[in-house]
């Protein structure tokens, strides 16, 4: 019987679909490549254009700053949400409800136009023109950060709640104050749960920043738009921008992969995860 040849089941349906896919993708590629309406030489020409590179810098700056601000604000909101005081936790719920419930695009435009109903800020004798403070950059950063903070709050709340309640009881029984228990016992263990989704949010944020182009905040997409407004090479510059977005998200994804592999996912890896997280925090701290 052991001599018997075994022929695996052939799934003809899968083969048909595969061939169909190759045909469709090939057709689309051919259509793009053979198009006489695309100036291919413009792509390498603009790929490393100074304006474009400046835009990339700003896109990265928006991503890093808004993530840092939203992590801090989200942490505060998460703790407020878990507060026993109904008004404190109610405020956090309201914040999360509002900022998750309205489109980010609307929030960006709103912040950019805030001088329409708050023309100036007067603190005592000090007078500010709202317009001079809320530049496109500030409006964009504010909108991205405040919006992201709502999502971050939910991620952190989930992380804090994932830590076994026995850990807090043990800390209490030993005489840790609530603050000591949060900083030394609860938060470090919550990090293991919090870090992977923060990675996802960061990657997503790299692309989300393109929305700030509506207020001309000089990110990558704004710059590409500015260039094609003059030379009408719309598709070419969108391809340039897309290439750069793909590069950034690919690099971020591989970073995330490395971090998550170090973090591990099982409880048995908890201490290793903690050390990896610490390393990460130190590295982040020295960059920022």
């Amino acid at each position: 019987m052991s001599e018997q040849r075994i022929i695996p089941a052939r799934n003809w349906g899968q083969w048909v679909i595969a061939i169909l896919l190759i045909a469709i993708v090939g057709f689309l590629l051919a259509m793009v490549i053979m198009s006489r309406h695309i100036t291919w030489s413009a792509i390498p020409q603009y790929l490393f254009d100074e304006t474009i590179l400046e835009g990339i810098k700003l896109t990265i700056l928006f991503t890093v700053l808004s993530m840092l601000i939203s992590i801090v604000a989200g942490g505060v909101l998460a703790m407020m949400r878990l507060s026993p005081n109904a008004i404190v936790s109610g405020f956090a719920s309201l914040y999360i409800w509002f900022f998750r419930g309205t489109p980010l695009l609307v929030q960006i435009i709103f912040w950019f136009n805030i001088q329409l109903f708050i023309p100036s800020i007067d603190i005592g004798s000090i007078h500010f023109d709202t317009n001079s403070i809320i530049t496109a950059f500030v409006a964009a950063l504010l909108a991205l950060s405040l919006n992201e903070a709502a999502y971050m709050a939910e991620i952190m709340r989930g992380g804090l709640m994932a830590v076994d309640s026995g850990q807090q009881e043990a800390a209490k029984a030993l005489g840790y104050t609530p603050t000591q228990s949060m900083l030394r016992i609860i938060f470090p263990q919550a990090l293991r749960v919090i870090i992977p989704p923060i990675g996802n949010q960061t990657i997503s944020m790299l692309k989300t920043t393109s929305l700030v182009s509506v207020v001309a905040a000089q990110d990558l997409l704004t710059r590409a738009q500015n260039i094609y407004a003059k030379n009408f090479l719309i598709i070419e510059l969108l391809i340039v921008a897309s290439i750069w977005y793909l590069v950034m998200t690919t690099v971020a994804s591989s970073l995330q992969y490395v971090i998550e592999r170090r973090l591990g996912r099982s409880t048995s890896d908890a201490p290793m995860a903690w050390r990896a997280a610490l390393r990460l925090l130190r590295a982040e701290g020295s960059n920022g």
Binding site: Q167, A173, A273
Partner: peptide, 12 residues
């Protein structure tokens, strides 16, 4: 001092 049924050692 308190000792718990489920130990509650700090896992990290």
């Amino acid at each position: 001092g308190m000792v718990f049924q489920r130990f509650n050692l700090f896992a990290h």
